[in-house]
Design a protein around this nucleic acid. Sequence first.
DNA 1: ACCATTTCGGAAATCGATTTCCTATATGTC
DNA 2: GACATATAGGAAATCGATTTCCGAAATGGT
Lengths: 341, 341
Amino acid sequence: MPLTIEDLAKELGLSRSTISKALNDRPYVSHETKARVLRTAHELGYQPSAAARNLRRQRTNKIGLVVTYPIHRVSDFLAELIPGMATVAEEAEYNLILYASMVGRVERIKSLCRSREVDGIIIAWPPSLSETVALSQLLADEDMPHIFLPRRVPHEAVSYVAADHVQGARLLTQHLIALGHRRIGFERLPEVYETDDDRHEGYAQALREAGIPYDPALVVSANSQDADYERRSFDAFQALDEPPTAILFFTDPLAIRALSHAKARGIRVPQDLSLAGYDGILSTGVTEPALTTVRQSTAEMGELAAASLLKLISAGGAEPQQHILPVDLIVRGSTGLNSRA
Amino acid sequence: MPLTIEDLAKELGLSRSTISKALNDRPYVSHETKARVLRTAHELGYQPSAAARNLRRQRTNKIGLVVTYPIHRVSDFLAELIPGMATVAEEAEYNLILYASMVGRVERIKSLCRSREVDGIIIAWPPSLSETVALSQLLADEDMPHIFLPRRVPHEAVSYVAADHVQGARLLTQHLIALGHRRIGFERLPEVYETDDDRHEGYAQALREAGIPYDPALVVSANSQDADYERRSFDAFQALDEPPTAILFFTDPLAIRALSHAKARGIRVPQDLSLAGYDGILSTGVTEPALTTVRQSTAEMGELAAASLLKLISAGGAEPQQHILPVDLIVRGSTGLNSRA
DNA sequence: ACCATTTCGGAAATCGATTTCCTATATGTC
DNA sequence: GACATATAGGAAATCGATTTCCGAAATGGT
């Protein structure tokens, strides 16, 4: 139904090729002809068919955001990630296609490559390291530019954008040490692989630097499947001979709930116990006391991922893009001087 | 580079048409031939070119989410909206393309239609009513199925999904009236048009039902450009001869900030003053006291919008889809009995 | 056994652009 | 003025599928 290039050609008494050359600013079209074509095209509101153009050009000017994790579990991050990502893409005349139901569907990713419906792929929250590397290999075999998010991939050929979680946890731990804490608990979350390793490493590193011995009793693993676990582990900490005077939580919601547990048990924060979260979600600003946390610039990560992917697309087979973004320590009221020091 | 249908045909010693019929489950292919084709296609990992298929079929199996509002201003809503939307689309073998930079770019929307890169459009946060209706007319002229979000469009031919804000504000106001409040302030936000009208209407309606006179002095307009305005209007309320004993805010962040102002001035919530927000963002659960608010099911709205759009797409020219979703009153600690009653 | 239908599969048209190739004219050089 | 080169524009090939059309073989009815 809409106008085709053929209609436009007929209207102007020219051939399809001339129209195409004029519209795409190619040589061998006289200045006047080109102007005439452009004017008429604009008047009639002609717009080339995306499908026809994609077929002929063998590219779509679309990038895919493939979420290989239950999407409702990461929607808060997506909210920060997507706007910048889409904006950067659109500045380069690309659009973002969302692939939301991609948990464990490697076959689907493969068919995405083969059908060539996107020119490049951002893979968000890929599964374990080994699967990530395998997936990267698969995509490379399919000649599909791609980049991973939001975890580093310790492999020289793989592109990724991540935040510096070693540094984040280190900053938090150093902050607590500076406040006089020496018994610092850490609640980790092994199910997120490298990120967990990194934060744990940052924690251990800061302790090491301060000459504080690492005590395994102070490190527990959270379990997102079992909510009551949080309460039990909190109480277990308090029941230790030498309970921690400060606790780092892998993520803000854990810390926020711990704050309620503490209050429920009459433990004052930060006078009796310092608590800190991680990620800097909005809610951390309105708890009482407000939560000390580490903020990663998710928005910047989205922009950088899109920009890097576009580079990979245009520079066919360029060197991998590997970026680790700095994080910011946000000190608020939930951490204070160690009163037992 | 990837396999084409021609390669597959050669491989099997068949013609393109036969392959196509087999893969698309059309008649006039013998059972064995079809089986053979399917098996080989699967073995070789053949996947039809999306561009070629789109061109021939004259549809893309993509729907567009066009955000006609600065995207970073609505990213929290997008976070709830997108997952369900994308999931519903994908269940019907559609994907979601995001168009993030569409503020005031009617021309761009038109070219989107003409280039046929999507089969339907969800328009989020369209501008004023008149522009919305004009836009709808434009899209209809272009034969582009479309639906608006998240505000109702009082026009019989236009499809939309919205939440029942009249009811939301009415529930909140009734709740406060039931607590004995009769001086109830309302901070509205005129820049969001119908939504503001609706909530104001719900507020006025509840007052009317309770026989409480509407006092214009109790209704102020917030201004998202001027942050200090909030504080001034809060103080202005307190300076009235008969200050309000409860205040409804157009949106949660306004209420949360008002909570800080109140504390800063030694006004106790809810003993001296009840406060309520609107939207039910996460932070409202962790303030102290937690905020009474109204929750709209944004996720459900996304799903419904996608499902409705798919209906419009498949039922070419069916009746418009108009949905108003119910909202929930969430009563928490920030509202209490009127102590001055 | 003969004619009318189906069934199967291939040849060719089609979707709407871009790109290559070609021809006719204009321009430039000596 | 003859010849090489550049320019303008058109004809046709191409991208990779789907769909229509057609002929040959198989099937069925009498």
